[in-house]
Design a protein around this nucleic acid. Structure first.
Lengths: 220, 220, 220, 220
DNA sequence: AATGAATGAGCGTTCATTCAT
DNA sequence: AATGAATGAACGCTCATTCAT
């Protein structure tokens, strides 16, 4: 046992190099295969075997990286959030006014959709599964920040004082459904879709009746 | 001969009595249990045994009524469509103008949501499963009719000439997401949600840039 | 209840006529369907549902006539024996000498095979099932009588004194296998097959070495 | 480097050691259990669970070795054929004349029966199942070769010119039925049974009427 | 760390049989 | 006597997960 370890170490050079790189690439291979399998079969119908079949690893190896099918699914969501949220945050910080804020959010989101259709397909296929939207830190978390920003904007008078929860929901709904439609076009047109969605939402907001007094806190 | 006929009738009529009543109530019991199980676990994770466990029937009995898990799922969707679509159609026919048309659609939809939360929960939990939205006659089919009506309205100048596909998608997105939010409120307020969604969409549409010439046919 | 019974009775004429005739014809319908199903699917793969599907009766009715799948199978065997054994016995009684005895047995058997191919097909398909040959009063029982007759003949010097058990087995083997082959010919030729089998057996017997002393009783 | 190679070899060779030995023994355990279960219950009534219950393996493990009940059954037949056919072929090749040919075939067959009663019991119990005799490479295939040899012998004048199909069938019938009887004796006497069967067939053949002209081709 | 065979609970489904009508 | 829905044990098979190598 000892001898073998020594031999391996001798052969494997800067150990905390190659080994870790292999680990990282195995993990990524599993994630990539899982993304595709979940998109094609849906979370429920996908099996761990389906996933590892998409890699060159053995079935047992899966459990060196993820402890269950659910965990790899959540990791996929988290990785996605890691990609999207900083972009959305940056887009908002760059915005000089409300219109730029809205348009920037849509454009950033739609650019992402086009750049990573595989993940998006997986996401839509599995909406609802594991209560995706509620339980995990994920893509829509960016929209949760949006909600906070909207409330802030209202408090400071920059945004008309309308029902913030309904407004955020409307944003999310428009973002996803128009985004879906855009991806079906050839070629997809993120700028055009963002222009459409922004104009719709900005026009809509200005037409909404203002709330009086403080915004209601009806939800826990 | 006469006597016999009478006897036969006496024997047959009760058939559309107890036996058939039992059958109908068993079928309904399975549908109800399935709705709840699909809502709680999702279609993929739900098993036929989970469903019949929610009734007082034996496992084999399930297959006297439905030939598979998928069939009971589709029956649920079909039953729902049977409830919703006529209401939506009627609401549109009653509408005197575009504003009434939009508001009526939202109100009808939100009234339905409140009246059948169980089905709606099941539906949202399983969006994407079995390509629900595409393959089956279902709730959103009402929105497909909406799209046709919107295109008609544009052709006849009643509705501003904007991208009809994006517009329909935006409608659907707003309808579902704001509807979700509404259902979390206590008490749910379908009128208020419909007012919000209608105002948003009507205001948004009037702010959208008009298309020039004929509407593009960018989707196959 | 009473009234109904009266009405039924009034309609059903000479009750211990039609009713019993119906019973007999139902029983026969089940037997016919069973014969075909067992021949096509084999006993193991055949289900009671398959059988009643071949009649116009309901599934529960099956159990008014037979208490299990196995019972209907045995009844089929017994019915067959009832057909075949008297014919074989008669053929043997008519025989003036050993040659006529052998030839008559084969001819009778092969005539039966041609006249009731359905039953024979069922039989061959299910040889071994339920230990057909051993456990039931059946077609081969005729050959058991053959064995007794052979032993008698030996005792009386009419048949060469050879191993009677082996000889009977050889008879059975030749009878069935040559019979099978005959049924595959178009047209089947029971006389020719009987001539072949008889000549073979008679010639063979005369060539067998005689046993000395009493025939061994090696089997319990 | 050298060290590593040694280590690797040390790690790999045992692979065609313990692991593979376990696999082979598991496969054999399943085959043995299947043989017994098929013999006792018949193919139709036997379940995969019955088979694995006869081993110390878990139910799922069955499917690592065979993909269905039918496959394990066919494997049993194939394994048997692999045992029997070469012996029969060799016996025929060793034969100097027709008599030796016939006697050698019977002796070889009966020796096999005694040496592998378990398989033979399984075989007889399931004759007809899955059309055993027709569809698979199996025990009787040896007798098919016999038929070819018989036809050759006739063409070359070594064997009297009789109906070759009936003759082959008669052979098969005698071989199996007399074989069955022999196995019931204590002790079984393959030599005696072969002597009996050979004498019977040889004597019978010489008594058969010769065909005139070319042998009829009555079967497709 | 990687492998892949073993595990056994659980799945969808079938079916002989029962029983209320 | 006839019906056919209900029953629930059992089936063939899959799968997430474990573990000896």
């Amino acid at each position: 046992m000892e001898k073998k370890a020594v031999a391996a170490e001798a052969a494997l050079v800067p150990l905390s190099g190659k080994r870790e790189r292999t680990k990282a690439s195995n993990r990524q291979a599993i994630l990539d295969a899982a993304r595709q399998v979940f998109a094609e079969l849906g979370y429920g119908a996908a099996s761990v075997r389906d996933i590892i079949r998409g890699t060159k690893l053995a079935s047992g190896t899966f459990y060196n990286y993820f402890s269950s099918k659910e965990e790899v699914f959540r990791a996929l969501l988290d990785d996605t959030a890691l990609q999207v949220r900083p972009r959305l945050r940056e887009a908002r910080l760059d915005a000089a006014n409300f219109e730029a804020f809205i348009r920037g959010t849509f454009e950033t989101f739609y650019d992402y959709l086009v750049s990573d259709r595989a993940t998006y397909a997986m996401l839509r296929r599995n909406t609802g599964t594991l209560r995706v939207r509620m339980d995990t830190p994920e893509i829509v978390a960016g929209f949760d920040e949006l909600k906070r920003d909207i409330k802030d904007g209202m408090a400071r008078g920059l945004i008309p004082n309308v029902d913030p929860d309904y407004l955020t929901s409307a944003f999310v709904g428009v973002a996803f459904e128009v985004g879906d439609r855009m991806l079906h076009r050839d070629p997809p047109d993120p700028k055009g879709a963002a222009a459409f969605a922004s104009a719709l939402m900005l026009g809509g907001i200005s037409a909404l009746p203002r709330l009086e007094g403080v915004p209601a806190k009806r939800e826990p």
